[in-house]
Amino acid sequence: MRIGVITFPGSLDDVDAARAIRLAGADPVALWHADHDLRDVEAVVLPGGFSYGDYLRAGAIAARAPMMRDVIDRARAGMPVLGICNGFQVLCEAGLLPGALTRNSHLHFRNRDQVLAVERADTAWTSAYSTGQRIVIPVKNGEGRYVGSPDDLDRLEGEGRVAFRYVDGNPNGSSRDIAGVTSEDGRVVGLMPHPEHAVEDLTGPSTDGLGFFTSILKAVVDA
């Protein structure tokens, strides 16, 4: 099974996303932002990094890359997409997920091992977890503060679209401790923390992140 990882200029964690996909048992497929060819992938990961230096707003320019038009069309037709960190920012900028990510409230880049509560264990990317499960995966960002208007946040929570919340400390001042959200159909998921950095005992704080990638494998095989 083929899962694409898009590399934008300034993408950094693309090799890590590809490794996580491989460790979960799928085939990572490298996709280039400037192409229009999704190369028959069945799902796409938008990796972390600083696409285009995050110079306009984080994720803003990447959201308008040629390949993203294909991703947006396919996602609206049900193709699963996971946005990690900068990838989450891209999904919000592209309008596939609600809200926006802004400068951390303390104004520092912060890298730490973070406890998350999984609130939605029924999306294409989270079926390996149970609702309410606590997982530890790294968070590392400078612009990870999730914001939206109070009405939008109320609606989001009412619809049950908060997929993850920060537990034991909010690393960036995100509204209502929101770490990640999902689309209405549970196919498009975005989060600031990095599951692809928690897939091996040797290099991660845990292997809790591997579930994202085994979940998608199951979702696509079952579909």
Binding site: L12, D16, F109, R110, N111, P138, K140, E196, T203, G204
Partner: peptide, 27 residues
């Protein structure tokens, strides 16, 4: 050190506060 990314590239085996930084160079 929490202002520094220690995880990117996925090969960091040890980093501060360990005495030495240790990296995997071949998976």
């Amino acid at each position: 050190t929490e202002q520094y990314d220690r995880y990117v590239r996925g090969n960091t085996v040890l980093a501060q506060p360990d005495d030495a930084g240790v990296l995997r160079i071949d998976e």
